[in-house]
Simulated assay, not measured.
Amino acid sequence: MTIRAAIRLSGIAMFCAAILLGETPNPALASERVVIATTGGAYDAALRKWWFEPFTAKTGIQVVSVAATNAEMRAKATAMVKTGNVSWDLYPDGEIQVSSKDHLAISEPLDSFCAQFKDRQDLVPDACIPAGVRLFSTSTLMAYNPQAFKGNKPETWADMWDTSKFPGGRSFPNFDDPWRVMAAALLADGVKRENLFPLDVDRALKKLDTLRPSISLWWKTGDQSVQGFRENDYSIGQIWLTRASALKAEGRSIAWSNKAAFLVGDRLTVIKGAPNRDNALKLIAFWLDSPEIQAKVCEALLCTPPSSTAIMMMPQAVRDQMPSAEDVRDSIVIPDAKWINEHAAELLERWNNWVR
């Protein structure tokens, strides 16, 4: 078969597949693409199945995902912008980080793009802001294996420090965003959530000293956190709700507590000088314009989508597991993004000196 014939057959196959999916193929060139970084694993799989592939079927634009940790994404994006050699188009950055000066220096301002969504009643008011577009909200929380304990189950950060009542290994993240570990330590030490910020770093590290012998895993990626749980490296750990829900979907024995949780989220960031900027914006618009896709992604990852319509499309059993308004009001900590960004370098230096 000649190369030309093979290409022709491939194009026919793509056309037929799109028809079967109920989509009208877009005459976009096969070379058109958009490159997005994700944290890989179950996170990337859910985005690919429910968002990237439907987008490609509708537009013909290929979505190329590259796996990296959150710290690697920020470092890579910064380096690419500084050198003028940008090979990625967008990545999800943390809700806290997008308001920092460092983020704004390497991201494409989205003022004009966001104008089309300002009157959308189904979207949360800050779904689209100049610094980035809300992918979803979730939480970092305490998850545990309920089969590891008889009787009462752990609910608070103080319970995580109680190794007599709740024996077994512990797990915490160790990357460039240590505030949540310090905050958990302070809450375990009796600090009220309304008095949590500014963080008392000395007190937090002193409290962490008492638990350090029981910490069996310092994870750097979401995949490491779930793999450690699968292999019984720890019985209680601080992980992302999206990863905990993926473990539950596997049939693992896992539970979590919204009484030991921090409200976090991801925003889609278009990198300054992105080679496929227009396609990146099309991908983001497709997300905001598709509540059914948001619903499927957040059903898989147990997150809160930016569209209220999407939330109503999710099964009631899934919605019941999402942090409720009462959880946010009564238990879940909303971090002080301004303070964290202003003290990020100091926090990281203190953390690195302690953890090594």
Score class of each variant (00 low, 15 high):
R319H: 04
L283A: 09
K272R: 15
A249W: 09
A261S: 03
A345V: 08
N276R: 14
S324R: 13
N232H: 13
R230F: 10
I340C: 00
P275H: 10
I311M: 15
M312G: 14
A280P: 01
E342H: 07
R230A: 06
P275M: 07
T309Y: 00
E250W: 11
F262D: 05
A261D: 01
A260T: 04
A261Y: 02
P275E: 04
W287M: 06
K338Q: 03
V328Y: 14
Q238G: 12
D327G: 02
I311P: 08
A274S: 14
M312W: 10
I334C: 07
L281F: 09
S308C: 00
L263I: 11
A261P: 03
A274L: 10
A260N: 06
C303S: 05
S290N: 09
N279T: 07
D336G: 05
A317H: 12
S257D: 00
M312P: 12
T304N: 08
K272P: 15
K248Q: 14
R329L: 07
Q294G: 09
M322Y: 10
N341D: 00
P275Y: 14
M322V: 09
V328C: 09
L281M: 09
E342S: 07
N341G: 01
W287Y: 08
A300E: 06
S290L: 03
S308I: 00
N279F: 06
F229S: 12
K338E: 05
K338R: 11
K272F: 12
V318C: 01
A274Y: 13
K272Q: 15
L288R: 00
D233K: 11
A260K: 03
A310Y: 01
L301T: 12
I311S: 15
R277G: 10
L348F: 10
S245F: 14
